[in-house]
Design a protein around this nucleic acid. Structure first.
Lengths: 205, 205
DNA sequence: AAAAATATTGGCCTGAAGGACAATACAGGT
DNA sequence: ACCTGTATTGTCCTTCAGGCCAATATTTTT
C-alpha cells in the first residue's frame, strides 16, 4: 500500500517522513497514468485558506483512483472542516502535526476499513444524529473495502444486476473466474447470494 | 490485548471462535478483581430484546475497565440501536454473524484507535450532521402501485432477498404461485429478474 | 527465502429461477 | 349470463447460480 503526501510545503512535515520514509511527497496531484491495482493512501495537507483546493483534489483522486483512501491533515483542525471533508468521502481527519506514531495508527485503521476521527468529532456526530431523523444519499458501500480489487469490480457489476456472463465480458475474464470472485465476495461479506450482495452494496442492510 | 465475548449463547458463535480462538467466552460480565493494565476488547452479543442488559453491561465495563474497548455485535443490526450503542461509547458496531475476517478487521481498527461502523451508519452520521436540515419521508417505491395486492406482497419479500420457497411459506401458498406472481410482477414492472426487481423497489433504478 | 494472499481457470453437480403452455375458481362490472 | 382481472396451481424444460473438487502464476507480506 503506497502513500502519497500532497502538501504545498516541499519536503512535507517531519512527522510524515518519520512515519513513512518511503512515501512520495508532492505539491500537487499528478495524473494517474498507470492502472495500478494497489490501494493508495493520499494524505492531503490542508490549510484553512485552501478549501477549494481540497474539494477539487479529493474529487480528482476519487475519479482517478477508485481504490484510494484519503486522509486530511489539517493545520488548524476544526469540526466544520472535518465534517465537510468526511462528507466528501475522506476516511480520516487529523492534525497536520500529528506525531509519526499517530499517523501510523491512522494508516492501520483505514487500511482495515475503519474510520479515524477525533473523539470530540465522533461524539458530536452521534449527538446530532441521535436527535434527528435523517435521510441517505447514494454512495457505494464501504463493505467494498473488505474485498480485493478484483472482487470489488465483480461485486459492483453483480450488484447492478449483471449476469456472470455479462460481467465476464466487460472485465474480459472467464465466467468461471467471475464465479470465483463472487463466491469469495459472498464469503467475505457474509452475503448468501448476489441479491444479498446487491442489497448490502446498495445500503440496504 | 485480550478478547472477551459476552453472549447468552454458551460457546458463542462460530465466527468468533474462528477469529479469536483464544478469546474467553462468558454469558455475563465477571467482576474485575485484578487491576490489569492491559487493554481488553469486550464483544457484546446483542439481541433485540436485551437493550437494558446492553446498557447495564456497557456501564459496568466502563467503570471496571478504564482501558476497555467495547464492540457490539447485533443479531439484528439497525441504525437506531447502533446510534444508541455508540452514544454510550462503543467503538464498533456490526452484525453478530459477521465472518471471522470482518471481526479481525474490527479488532485491528479499534486497537489502533479507530472506529468501526457500517457504511450506512457513517454516512447517516455525516449527512445529518453536515446538513442538519431536510429529511425525506421513507417513500416506498411508486413501482409497487403498478402491482396487484398479492403481487405486491410477493415482490416485497423477493426484494428482501427471500427465495421462492421462503416466500411461499410465509404467504402460505405454493412455490408455483409465487413464481406466477413474480413473473407477473416482472412483466408489469419491466424487470428482467428478481434482482432488478429488488433494485427497483429499493429506489436504485 | 518462505509464506500468505490474490487472480485466474477447469470440470462436475445440485438446486433454484423463470419461461412456455396450460387449467380452475372467484370477484366485479356490463 | 358474459367478460375481465385476479389468485391459485400443475408439468415440463432450459438456463443460471453457486458450491466443491481442484491447479497454477503472480503479487504481497513476513
Amino acid at each position: 500500500m503506497q502513500d502519497i503526501f500532497i502538501s504545498p510545503l516541499s519536503g512535507g512535515l517531519a512527522g510524515w517522513v518519520e512515519a513513512f520514509p518511503h512515501a512520495k511527497i508532492a505539491d500537487f496531484l499528478k495524473p494517474n497514468k498507470s492502472q495500478a491495482s494497489e490501494t493508495i493512501v493520499f494524505w492531503l495537507h490542508m490549510n484553512a485558506d485552501r478549501q477549494e483546493w481540497l474539494t477539487k483534489t479529493i474529487k480528482q483522486i476519487q475519479q482517478q483512483y477508485t481504490q484510494a483512501k484519503i486522509v486530511v491533515l489539517a493545520n488548524s483542525p476544526n469540526q466544520a472542516e472535518a465534517l465537510y471533508a468526511m462528507s466528501l468521502g475522506v476516511v480520516a481527519y487529523s492534525h497536520a502535526y500529528s506525531p509519526a506514531q499517530v499517523l501510523r495508527e491512522i494508516k492501520t485503521v483505514i487500511s482495515h476499513g475503519g474510520v479515524w476521527m477525533g473523539p470530540d468529532l465522533l461524539k458530536r456526530l452521534i449527538e446530532v444524529s441521535s436527535t434527528l431523523a435523517g435521510n441517505q444519499a447514494e454512495q457505494v458501500s464501504q463493505h467494498l473495502s473488505l474485498l480485493t480489487n478484483r472482487e470489488k469490480q465483480v461485486a459492483i457489476e453483480a450488484a447492478k444486476g449483471l449476469s456472470n456472463k455479462e460481467i465476464a465480458r466487460i472485465l474480459d475474464i472467464t465466467e468461471r473466474t467471475v464465479k470465483a470472485h463472487l463466491s469469495a465476495s459472498f464469503e467475505r461479506l457474509g452475503a448468501k447470494d448476489r441479491l444479498h450482495l446487491a442489497l448490502m452494496l446498495n445500503n440496504k442492510s
